[in-house]
Computed example of a mutant assay.
Amino acid sequence: MPEDVTPDDLHTSARNELKTLSKENAEQVARHLAMAARLIEEDPALAHEHALAASRRAGRIAIVRESLGITAYATGDFALALRELRTYRRISGKDDQIALMVDSERGIGRSDRALETGRAADRSKLSTPVRVALAIAMSGARLDQGETELALGELQIPELNPDRAFEWSPALFGAHAAVLEDLGRDDEAAFWIERADVAADALGLGDDDEMIVEDGLIEGEYPDDESVDAPVASAVEEPTVSEPVDEPAEELETEPETIVEDESVEAPEEDS
């Protein structure tokens, strides 16, 4: 653990969830989660080790189980990712990682279960970025089953607007283009590929900016109503991203001050 990593490197809303721990334990957990966020793109395996270390100290905290699920997904351990994200959902009552759950079901070869999982979510209660990510994941599950037309239909959502650009627009436009290519509709696909490129340029995003998204998944950043929004027709040199809004900590059962064994990792917890 680098000495320059401090609990303050973790977003405030995430640190709030650790207040049920002893001060010393909360600081160590926060440092491990901050390292997981820092490393998840460049070294997913090491990021996962930090998330595991946090889970051994605070296995009942929602942000810890969420981070463990995300890092497991990043390393390709889809069974563990699914288990941890289910546990995160049960503890937090949130469905904001539903897209990763759908993709994890796909990763272990259960596209039918992936579709069931996605359909069970109430999309009206999801934030826009999560709803878009779910649409892309559901489209992928349709492709897994050879249902290309239905895969296209999954992407026909209000957010598929070629004239507006948000953080999630390049991914949505690109997914739409890929399905159109599979259908042999090359002219339409070319249009959406161009729209995806223009949207990325307008938002100042590039190939190296995926970490922003992953950090948001781990640290609870980028709430729905504060996404970057820019007209696709014109480039923006410095898009302004609003500061994340702190959320109150979940009321969780008080965690013992001593370090506990990693029962959460060794004993799967399934939803009822």
Rank of each mutant, 00 (worst) to 15 (best):
I40F: 11
I40H: 06
E42N: 12
D43S: 11
D43G: 07
D43A: 09
P44G: 05
P44V: 04
P44W: 06
P44A: 04
A45P: 05
A47F: 03
H48K: 07
H48G: 04
H48D: 08
E49S: 15
H50G: 00
H50L: 00
A51M: 00
L52A: 07
A53Q: 01
A53W: 00
A58M: 08
A62C: 08
A62K: 04
V64L: 14
R65C: 08
E66W: 14
S67V: 10
L68E: 12
L68G: 06
G69I: 12
I70W: 00
T71M: 09
A72P: 10
Y73T: 01
Y73M: 02
G76I: 03
A79R: 15
A79E: 11
A79V: 14
A81N: 00
R83S: 12
E84Q: 14
T87P: 02
T87E: 04
Y88R: 07
R90G: 06
I91S: 02
S92G: 02
K94E: 04
K94Y: 15
D95M: 09
D96N: 10
I98E: 00
I98Y: 00
A99M: 01
L100E: 05
S104P: 09
S104D: 06
R106C: 05
R106Q: 06
R106M: 03
G109K: 08
D112H: 14
R113G: 06
L115S: 02
T117P: 01
T117A: 14
G118M: 02
A120P: 04
A121M: 08
D122Y: 14
K125N: 10
K125Q: 10
L126T: 01
L126E: 01
S127Q: 13
T128I: 15
P129S: 08
V132Y: 08
V132G: 04
V132E: 11
V132Q: 14
A137L: 01
G140I: 00
A141S: 11
A141R: 06
A141N: 03
D144R: 01
D144A: 02
D144Q: 01
Q145L: 10
G146E: 07
E147G: 03
E147I: 06
A151C: 08
G153E: 05
G153A: 06
E154I: 04
Q156K: 12
Q156G: 03
L160M: 15
N161V: 06
N161S: 12
N161P: 05
D163V: 14
E167T: 11
P170L: 13
A171Q: 13
